[in-house]
């Protein structure tokens, strides 16, 4: 009987356990931790995003493994966890960014976009019959307040960071905590992001599987293969 009741808490996403936990949300976090990690590092003037696209087979086209996404002129999103779930959030972000431009005639901010996505994610943790998003996001970019990096987790909580990671275990964030310092330039931020990524990945990454972009006032720029090789 006891066992039956415990099962019930973890079946319904909208049902709290007696100690106040939402098991489905915690399982979604687990799905994120199992995913290939993505790192964001803010620096003076912009944010660097880096991720390892994990290919299922050497036959898979590396360009089809998408971890970093352009969202607006000066906003990008890195994802970890269920790719299918993440893609929906990324497209919602793109549409939202344009809706804000249509409504106000000016670009949205990183914070506003992250919070709008967080609201969408939160809704799935409180709606009967739904499943939480099994993905976490890093929303990164430059707006009228300068460089900005936000994380959105499967519970729908937004949080602002100078450097952080989604996916993988805590080793990445620990590495960033040890090495991050204020006043980084783009090159140092990119180096730190890739170092953290290697810290949390067993296999050696190759320039083919590594994705790096930086977003600054000039826009969203993808590092080419030579630049990625230089970082490894």
């Amino acid at each position: 009987m006891q066992g039956h009741e415990q099962t019930a808490y973890d079946r319904g996403v909208t049902v709290f356990s007696p100690d106040g936990r939402l098991y489905q949300v915690e399982y979604a976090r687990e799905a994120v931790e199992r995913g290939a990690p993505a790192v964001g590092v803010a620096y003076d003037g912009g944010v660097v995003l880096a991720a390892n696209g994990r290919r299922r087979s050497p036959l898979q086209d590396p360009d089809s493994v998408e971890k970093l996404h352009a969202v607006d002129d000066r906003i990008g999103i890195a994802t970890a966890g269920h790719v299918a779930d993440a893609r929906r959030l990324v497209d919602r972000a793109r549409v939202r960014a344009q809706e804000e431009r249509l409504r106000y005639g000016e670009p949205t901010t990183v914070e506003a976009l992250a919070k709008a996505l967080a609201d969408l994610v939160q809704e799935t943790t409180q709606t009967g019959g739904s499943r939480p998003f099994g993905a976490a996001l890093l929303v990164a970019g430059v707006d009228d307040r300068g460089p900005s990096l936000y994380q959105v987790d499967p519970s729908g909580t937004p949080s602002g960071w100078r450097a952080t990671a989604v996916g993988g275990d805590g080793a990445l964030v620990s590495h960033l905590e040890r090495r991050y310092e204020d006043g980084l330039d783009e090159a140092a931020a990119a180096e730190l992001a890739v170092d953290a990524l290697r810290e949390g990945t067993e296999a050696d990454s190759t320039p083919t599987d590594l994705d790096v972009t930086r977003i600054d006032a000039a826009g969203y720029r993808v590092y080419d293969e030579d630049e990625r090789r230089g970082l490894l």
């Binding site: 607006d72 497209d91 344009q98 431009r101 249509l102």
Partner: peptide, 16 residues
């Protein structure tokens, strides 16, 4: 014009 810019921007971000 506003709508066309939004369409173009969305297209570019979606398709690269």
């Amino acid at each position: 014009v506003r709508r066309l810019r939004a369409e173009a921007s969305l297209y570019e971000n979606r398709r690269g």
